[in-house]
């Protein structure tokens, strides 16, 4: 009797199983092998669970909601399309492509290239959908303005957002078997380079915001809008100062021993957790106030647009709340890491 799965079927299953689970899942399937039919059935029944589990680990539901809202309104201009489905389809295509890229992500230190490929695939998916709509349902095509304006500009922003915080990275919390110095050093290096890159991109974005809103501040707009623009510009400058002052990476020296490295790493994680917990105060509040003053407050002066001003205020509040909640989640995750490293440290000392 054959005791090994046919190579072709195994190759197919190998492609379908996310890399993070591939090694042990393929081994388990091989161990249970009885016939090609049973092997394939086993694999196909297990796959949805494995993909769903990986999706849960690599995707933040609130973050996905936020990106979805950004794509629908800011990139595909949902409120300017003939039919709302026209913006919904490319939004869903982009979300699914990015989420699946995260699910099937292998550990990749070259984030720039990885993120560029992610965005290129998502953009190709959107363009392909436009080709299909052109032939089958022209009423669902995005407007020319959207394709030439919001779409390229939005995807450039999306590229920087993904580059700043790459998806698909999941660090399981268990450390019961201990951690070697090499693993700890690799984790610290990865952590430092991710934070350094994220801060650089954030500071770059804040410089652009500060300059852009300065231009609006000096423009002949209504006074309240100019005050709002000035406020937003000042908020961006404040965030730059704050990031430089408190978030800057303080590298942990390579010559530190195991205990010192863990202690320094935990101290840095505590600093990072504090920043995530207070994100609403130093990031969301200043910027949201500026945006509100600039974009919404002028509407309140006109009696006919008070309802739309109230709705816009609610949307701004909801987006701010989601951003705060996402960062509270980061803070909790960081806290768990701090506790685990504490256990590792105690075990090492014992």
């Amino acid at each position: 009797m054959e005791t090994r799965s046919p190579e072709m079927i195994e190759k197919l299953v190998r492609v379908l199983v996310p890399p993070a689970s591939r090694e042990h899942v393929l081994g388990d399937l091989q161990e249970r092998y009885q016939s090609p039919r049973q092997y394939l059935a086993d694999a196909l029944k297990a796959l949805p669970f494995i993909i769903a589990s990986r999706l849960r680990r690599t995707t933040h539901p609130l973050g996905l909601l936020l990106v979805g809202a950004f794509l629908y309104w800011a990139v595909f201009w949902g409120n300017r399309q003939e039919h709302w489905v026209a913006a919904l389809v490319p939004t869903l295509i982009t979300l699914v492509v990015l989420a699946m890229r995260d699910v099937y992500r292998e550990v990749a230190p070259k984030w720039l290239r990885v993120v560029a490929v992610d965005i290129a695939i998502a953009a190709s998916g959107v363009l392909l959908s436009q080709l299909i709509f052109a032939a089958t349902a022209p009423g669902l095509l995005l407007t020319r303005d959207t394709l030439l304006g919001g779409f390229p500009l939005g995807f450039v922003i999306l590229f920087f957002v993904r580059w700043q915080s790459p998806g698909g990275v999941h660090q399981p919390p268990g450390f019961s078997r201990g951690i070697s110095m090499q693993e700890l050093r690799a984790e610290i290096n990865q952590y430092e380079s991710t934070i350094r890159r994220a801060i650089r991109i954030e500071i770059g974005a804040c410089i652009l915001v500060a300059l852009g809103f300065q231009v609006l501040f000096w423009s002949p707009a209504p006074l309240i809008s100019r005050i709002g623009a000035g406020f937003t510009s000042a908020a961006a400058l404040f965030i730059i100062w704050y990031l430089h002052r408190y978030a800057r990476v303080r590298p942990i020296p390579e010559n530190f021993g195991f205990a010192d490295s863990i202690a320094a790493y935990r101290a840095d994680l505590k600093r990072r957790r504090r920043m995530s917990k207070t994100y609403g105060w130093w990031y969301v509040m200043p910027l949201a106030t500026g945006f509100w003053l600039m974009g919404i407050a002028p509407q309140l002066q006109r009696p006919d647009s008070q309802l739309s001003a109230a709705l816009s205020t609610l949307v701004l509040a909801a987006v701010s709340a989601i951003l705060v909640l996402v960062h509270q989640g980061f803070a909790r995750k960081t806290q768990r890491r701090i506790e685990q490293l504490g256990i590792v440290s105690e075990r090492t000392q014992a």
Binding site: V25, A46, S53, R57, P173, R177
Partner: peptide, 28 residues
């Protein structure tokens, strides 16, 4: 698998990969 992943994320179980074995097609 999905439940083990969830338990691992809750910090209730931990996991590690063993050395590959021939009866599993050289997989861990």
């Amino acid at each position: 698998y999905a439940t083990l992943d969830r338990l691992e994320d809750k910090g209730l179980v931990s996991s590690w990969l063993s050395d590959p074995t021939p009866e599993r097609g050289g997989r861990s």
